[in-house]
Design a protein around this nucleic acid. Structure first.
Ligand SMILES: [Mn+2]
Ligand SMILES: [Mn+2]
Ligand SMILES: [Zn+2]
Ligand SMILES: [Zn+2]
Lengths: 143, 143
DNA sequence: ACACAGTTGCAATAGATTTGCGGATGCAAT
DNA sequence: ATTGCATCCGCAAATCTATTGCAACTGTGT
């Protein structure tokens, strides 16, 4: 019924509560979420962790979800709705994350270099900035 | 006696075989290595995994080693020797990694935007490209 | 309602990283 | 070279994140 069910059906996959919720929750979140974060935001009854992982894997393979690799222990996930390409900033002290849409993100020159030098066809990229957020900086750069 | 011992001593940390070897191995590797990779390249007797992790943590905190977050299960590490800023390309099918020095990597405009919008002081960034390597592309894009 | 494929919870398992602890080692001061 | 203290190391146990096997359950088309 929602856009999500549509997408799943179109891709020939059964629509289940877990999948719809994952897509809804990720879409509402301004930040990429870990599997645990995600599960916590489920309305009760919460699905098993294994189910969350399996669904994240499925949705990723269908291109509806993207994984985000920050320098953390666990992976994060975000909705891959169309053209919401983002870059991120992470605070090295407290882990605070900000994300911002990357308009006119032009790395086509670099991608062309890559094609020539390595023969790789680039389909995607991720760009993260690391530094110190204002709060941590004020507190003496060692949160 | 090597440059490595110097760096450690200067930072007031005991010089041990494990630390020197880690720095040497990482410096000789064209690719960032996982903790396991690293340990395998140690001459015998190989240190305990815990020791490798502890030393990587220490060397990171001293700024001599950087962690690299690709979309893998484990973290990778690279030598942070001065001006060897690199970008990377990863094959989504087979995991092959290429790294290349990023000359004239000018993201200062973006970093300035970040300072204005979020107040973050950016000290570093990481940029990775994902796609398909020539071999995997030839084999039908599904390694 | 029926049949089948695909999904889920649960428990077991794997793999990466961290931690406690007692015995070794690095290093600076005798 | 010896001593003393801080730090490090190996080893085993503990944590965490993520994956897998299996039997019961659900989604979807007929
Ligand atoms: Mn971009
Ligand atoms: Mn760069
Ligand atoms: Zn912060
Ligand atoms: Zn490949």
């Amino acid at each position: 019924m929602g856009r999500h069910s549509e997408a799943l059906r179109r891709l020939g996959r059964p629509v289940t509560r877990g999948r719809e919720e994952i897509l809804r929750i990720l879409e509402e979140s301004p930040l990429p979420l870990s599997s645990r974060d995600l599960r916590e935001r489920f309305p009760d009854p919460k699905p098993d962790a294994a189910t969350v992982y399996r669904n994240l894997a499925l949705l990723s393979s269908l291109g509806l979800v993207r994984t985000v690799a920050l320098h953390e222990r666990s992976r994060r996930y975000e909705a891959a709705e169309g053209e919401n390409h983002r870059h991120r900033v992470v605070c090295r002290s407290c882990g605070r994350i900000e994300a911002f849409p990357a308009r006119k993100c032009d790395l086509s020159r670099v991608e062309e270099d890559i094609r020539r030098r390595f023969g790789f066809t680039v389909t995607d990229h991720s760009l993260e900035f690391f530094g110190d957020c204002p709060e941590c900086r004020r507190k003496g750069n060692k949160g």
